[in-house]
Amino acid sequence: MKIKIIYPDTAKHSSGRRKLLKILKWPFLAALIACPIVNVCVGGKAWSIIAVAGIAMVWSLVFAPDLVEYNRLSQSVKAILYACIMLILIDVFLVSGWALLVVPIVCLGGLILSSVLFFSDCRKQKQNMLPMLFLVIIAVIAAIAGLFIWKDEVSWPFLAMGGAAVAQLIACIIALRGEFIRELQKRFHIK
């Protein structure tokens, strides 16, 4: 069977990223298995939980990015949420007593960052609004819960976080007006 070649030579364009991922997969997997084993053998605090969460976070953010909606807003929100989860885990499993103060402040920082990213290019970023909206909703819920549960311990970080979230939501509605509703219709459609 004689084949006439009618396609360009693509040898030079083979995927370097795919090769890199293939190589990196193994040390990541090894670390994922080794950390809990070493932790159990050595004993002490459950640091391996933080290590495993960190590995998962790096893999998800750096090596296996989102296939849909990979943009600066979604990645920033994702990184902030991961950071908050990591901080909570560190507080629970390693050194306790500071997360109630730090996590809302980090989340507040995240809200400010997402606001800057959104309002600096509102026309384009309105298409990427959903992750920011999630962060706002999570922040509002967390602030209400925080103020209700820990009202005698620390209240100002929760107040600041909740206030910023509500302000961001209002600013977003004012900036987008009718488009805000249209964006919500798209994002929550069930058709």
């Binding site: 959903l130 798209k186 459609h189």
Partner: peptide, 13 residues
């Protein structure tokens, strides 16, 4: 269009 994520389904924007 471009593919986007909704809360329940993807959609084309």
């Amino acid at each position: 269009t471009t593919l986007k994520k909704g809360f329940f389904w993807h959609y084309l924007d």
